[in-house]
Simulated scan of single mutants.
Amino acid sequence: MSRKVDLVADLGEGFGPWRMGDDAQLLDILTSANIACGFHAGDPQIMDETVRACVERGVGIGAHPSFPDLQGFGRRDMGLTADEVRTDVLYQFGALHAIAAFHGVPVTHIAPHGRLGNLVAVREDYADVVASAARRLDPELIVLAQDGKLADAARAAGLRVGIVGIADRAYEDDGTLVPRSEPGAVIHDGEEIRRRTVRMVVDGVIESRNGTLIPVACDTVLVHGDTTGAVVLAQQIRVGLEEAGVEIAPLTDWLE
Rank of each mutant, 00 (worst) to 15 (best):
Arg136Pro: 00
Asp147Thr: 13
Cys37Tyr: 03
Val107Pro: 03
Gly74Gln: 07
Gly211Ala: 15
Ala53Pro: 01
Asp189Asn: 07
Asp138Glu: 12
Val202Pro: 02
Asp128Ser: 14
Glu192Val: 14
Pro44Gln: 01
Ile99Gln: 02
Ala185Gly: 08
Glu256Cys: 05
Gly158Ile: 08
Leu27Gln: 09
Ala157Asn: 08
Asp128Gly: 09
Pro112Arg: 12
Gly117Asp: 04
Leu96Ser: 06
Gly72Arg: 10
Gly190Pro: 00
Asp28Ser: 07
Phe39Asn: 10
Arg169Ala: 08
Val164His: 00
Gly175Tyr: 02
Gly225Asn: 14
Arg160Trp: 08
His103Leu: 04
Asp219Ser: 11
Gln71Ile: 14
Phe15Ser: 10
Gly148Cys: 08
Val202Trp: 08
Lys4Leu: 07
Trp254Asp: 01
Asp83Thr: 10
Arg135Gln: 12
Val231Leu: 13
Val122Ala: 07
Tyr171Thr: 12
Ala157Lys: 11
Arg123Trp: 01
Pro44Ala: 03
Ile110His: 03
Phe93His: 15
Glu49Ala: 08
Ile193Gly: 04
Val201Arg: 04
Glu13Ser: 15
Val239Asp: 13
Gln71Pro: 00
His109Asn: 03
Leu251Phe: 12
Gly60Asn: 05
Ala156Cys: 02
Asn118Asp: 15
Arg180Cys: 05
Arg135Ala: 14
Arg57Phe: 06
Arg57Gln: 06
Asp22Val: 11
Val223Phe: 05
Gln25Met: 06
Val205His: 13
His64Leu: 04
Gly190Arg: 09
Gly204Ser: 12
Gln236Pro: 00
Glu242Asn: 11
Glu191Phe: 00
Phe39His: 13
Val55Tyr: 02
Val120Cys: 06
Asp88Thr: 15
Ala170Ser: 15
Val186Pro: 05
Gly211Asn: 13
Ala230Ile: 03
